[in-house]
Every structure is written in structure tokens, then in C-alpha cells.
Simulated assay, not measured.
Amino acid sequence: MQDEPTPNELIKAVADFLRSEIAPAIKGHNSFKLRVGINALDLVTRQLSLAQAADAAEAARLKQLLKIDGSLFDLNRVLSEKIASGDVDLQTPGLADHLWQTTMDKLAVDQPNYASYKREIGQQS
């Protein structure tokens, strides 16, 4: 197994090449399809870079909030059940902060150019 370049670097290099060298020459519907492909590569790059740490932080917050252990999937299921039953609501200490941070972490991966997200993190262009 090679150490360099990383999968993240390879995917980013392909996306950058497509964006700078290929996209300017493509027109019409194929241009749209190419942009969709480039966006998918950018998303995968962000997932490789950010998602694992965000998931670990989310699981840690859920474990503290719910006072139980489990997988991220199971912890989110328990939280959903507790919200649905009324056992947990926005008055529950830590819940609003957890929901906010989880949303921000997911936006960082999925939609980092979303205007409200950029404004919230102070990077509005």
C-alpha cells in the first residue's frame, strides 16, 4: 500500500483537472453532467476529510446526552424515539447544542458553500 498520494488527494486532483482543463471545453447538457460529476468528487473529498471526525464527535455527544453507549445509528434511533415520545425536548440540557453542531458538521460535508452556513461560520464571501 502506498502512502502518497492519499485517496483524498487523488480525488481532488481529478476534480481540479476536470474543472480547470475539461469543463471550459464542454458545452450544453454535457457541461451540466460534468459539473454534477465534479460536485460528486468534491463531496467524496469532503466526506473522506471530515465525516469520520464529525461522526465520532456526534456519537460522543449522543453518549453524553443519552447516558448510554452504542453505534451512531443506534444512538440516533434512541434520540429520535425519545424526542417522539416527549422524553427529550429542546429544554433538555445539551440537546439544542448537539442538534446545532450536528447540522453544522453535516453542512460542512454536504453544502459548505450554502450561504447561511458560510454566514454562520463567519466565512461569508
Rank of each mutant, 00 (worst) to 15 (best):
K12T: 11
A96Y: 09
D87E: 12
Q47M: 06
A57F: 11
P112W: 00
L34K: 02
I26G: 03
D55L: 10
Q2H: 06
V36L: 14
K33L: 12
M104Q: 12
L79G: 02
A13W: 07
L43G: 06
K33V: 13
Q111R: 12
K106H: 10
Q64H: 07
A51I: 07
A59R: 12
T45A: 15
R119A: 13
V109A: 03
L66E: 00
D87I: 15
Y117Q: 04
M104K: 12
R35D: 05
D74N: 08
R77I: 15
G70H: 05
S31L: 08
G28L: 04
G28E: 07
S20C: 04
P5Y: 03
D97P: 08
K27L: 06
A53C: 12
E21T: 08
N39T: 11
L50C: 05
K82V: 15
E4G: 10
A23W: 01
D55M: 11
G70L: 09
G37R: 00
D105H: 03
A13F: 07
A59C: 13
M1T: 11
A60P: 11
L95M: 03
A15R: 00
G94P: 01
A25Q: 14
P5G: 07
L99A: 05
F32P: 04
F73T: 09
A59H: 06
V88R: 02
A51F: 06
A13K: 09
A57P: 07
A96K: 14
L10P: 07
A115N: 12
A84D: 14
R46P: 00
G122K: 13
A54V: 10
Q2L: 15
R77S: 08
L48F: 06
L41E: 01
F32L: 12
S80D: 15
G28T: 06
L99K: 08
K63Q: 13
I22R: 03
K67E: 13
L72D: 01
L65S: 10
A51C: 09
V109C: 10
S125K: 10
M104Y: 10
P112F: 02
E58K: 11
A51D: 09
Q124R: 14
L65T: 02
P24Y: 12
S85A: 10
L34W: 00
K118W: 04
I68N: 06
D105M: 04
R46M: 00
G37P: 02
D89W: 15
D3S: 09
T6K: 07
A25R: 11
Q123H: 06
P5W: 01
L99M: 13
Q91T: 06
L107I: 07
A57S: 15
A54L: 08
H98W: 02
L90T: 06
R77C: 08
V14N: 02
Q111T: 07
V14A: 14
S31T: 08
R61D: 10
A59I: 09
D42P: 01
L62Y: 00
A40G: 08
L34F: 03
E21W: 09
Q47G: 05
K82L: 13
L41N: 01
D42M: 03
G37Q: 00
Q91E: 09
V14C: 08
Y114K: 11
L43S: 03
L50T: 04
V88E: 02
S71H: 04
S125Q: 11
A54Y: 04
D74K: 05
I121C: 12
N30Y: 07
D89E: 07
R119Q: 15
R35Q: 12
K63F: 05
D105T: 01
K63E: 04
V36P: 00
P112R: 05
H98K: 04
